[in-house]
């Protein structure tokens, strides 16, 4: 099927999946692309338990040059969501989302830790694609001190709640703890990565 370094027969590696994903995305959005994505998802599921998913993703991330083009990163970001989907469900579980966020948004979203803590404590439902995507937009246009956030905007309710929460606990307070936590957050991620190994 492809020249994967892995020996399993029906195994396609993450690079190949990503290549196909990007192909589908770049072709015009229509019914076909949706079907193609479903097909691809089935193929991904054939790989079996995504035990090494986060390893794969971080491998892919270090391989791709995502620093230059924000559009390319957005594509990769969406791809992460795509890969986290299970059993044909549209939404992904909270646990997966948090690990994935910590992986891909590290260094890109200044409130990443606050966000993950908040979601962990206050959200019980799965994370929808819309919320996933809007967090990227949020990380891009809203500053650390929440400047740039428009309460009248169309942010998903979860993000509104997050901002409320941040205002409640006091931004200054959280900022200092953020700096304090920075190193530990990285360890968290390492921990996660180890567990998934």
């Amino acid at each position: 099927m492809n020249s994967s370094s892995y020996s399993t027969s029906n195994f396609i590696d993450i690079f190949e999946i990503y290549r196909r994903y990007c192909d589908i995305r770049s072709s015009k959005k229509n019914q076909n692309s949706k079907e193609a994505l479903t097909q691809l998802l089935k193929l991904v599921e054939l790989r079996g338990q995504a035990s090494s998913l986060y390893n794969d993703l971080s491998k892919l991330m270090s391989y791709l040059d995502l620093t230059v083009d924000s559009g390319r990163f957005a594509c990769f970001y969406d791809f992460v969501f795509f890969m986290c989907r299970e059993n044909g469900q549209k939404n992904i579980t909270l646990e997966k989302a948090i690990v994935a966020w910590k992986l891909v948004l590290n260094g890109r979203f200044r409130l990443l830790n606050e966000w993950c803590n908040f979601v962990e404590k206050h959200q019980r439902h799965n994370v929808s694609e819309d919320t996933w995507q809007q967090i990227l937009a949020f990380s891009r246009c809203v500053h650390e001190d929440l400047e740039g956030y428009d309460p009248k905007g169309a942010w998903p309710v979860l993000i509104d709640d997050f901002v409320d929460y941040m205002h409640r606990i006091g931004i200054s307070n959280s900022c200092s703890s953020r700096i304090h936590n920075r190193s530990s957050s990285y360890e968290d991620f390492e921990d996660e990565a180890c567990k998934s190994d």
Binding site: N91, S128, E129, D130, A154, W155, P156, V157, D160
Partner: peptide, 13 residues
């Protein structure tokens, strides 16, 4: 407002 937004999100979903 939050309720409307939730409905909108659900429709997006």
């Amino acid at each position: 407002m939050a309720y409307l937004k939730k409905r909108i999100e659900s429709l997006i979903d």
